[in-house]
Design a protein around this nucleic acid. Sequence first.
DNA 1: TGCAAATGCAAACTATATCTTACATCGGGT
DNA 2: ACCCGATGTAAGATATAGTTTGCATTTGCA
Lengths: 66, 66
Amino acid sequence: MKNNVKITRIKASITQEQLARKIGVTRQTIGLIEKGEYNPSLQLCVAIAKELNKTLDELFWEVDTK
Amino acid sequence: MKNNVKITRIKASITQEQLARKIGVTRQTIGLIEKGEYNPSLQLCVAIAKELNKTLDELFWEVDTK
DNA sequence: TGCAAATGCAAACTATATCTTACATCGGGT
DNA sequence: ACCCGATGTAAGATATAGTTTGCATTTGCA
């Protein structure tokens, strides 16, 4: 479950905690997703994408094959 | 959690059960996702998208605002 | 160098996605 | 009218996403 969340968040100059707050999850959840250590729900993915002004595909689609 | 899975699956002329089998989930799971009655994991979304030759965005992104 | 914010990590807990089994319904074909 | 494949639905069990708390580590900055 590799993804582009970390890179995108850093480019947006916000912290894990700020992102987590806006979305309504914990900092740990964001941390684990960024590390690819788990498999978030679709709702969460959409929430993250909207907050970072990206689409699902940009953050989560075939990140490996880049 | 509205999405385009049902329409896309029907266009592909396969049944819920066939799709479920290929992905490795139950027919019920597909049924509930199509109805928007729950919130699938990212892995599942990706598996469905690949099986239907679509991307995440095509199946799950801002389906409401169409 | 040293402090403080940001991140990593881990255990125990809660919520919910998904499975299993089972039955009901619906529509098309004969 | 009947059969059968496809779908809807529901209850109980299990796996795992996400929380909470707490502490360790890293990194930027005065």
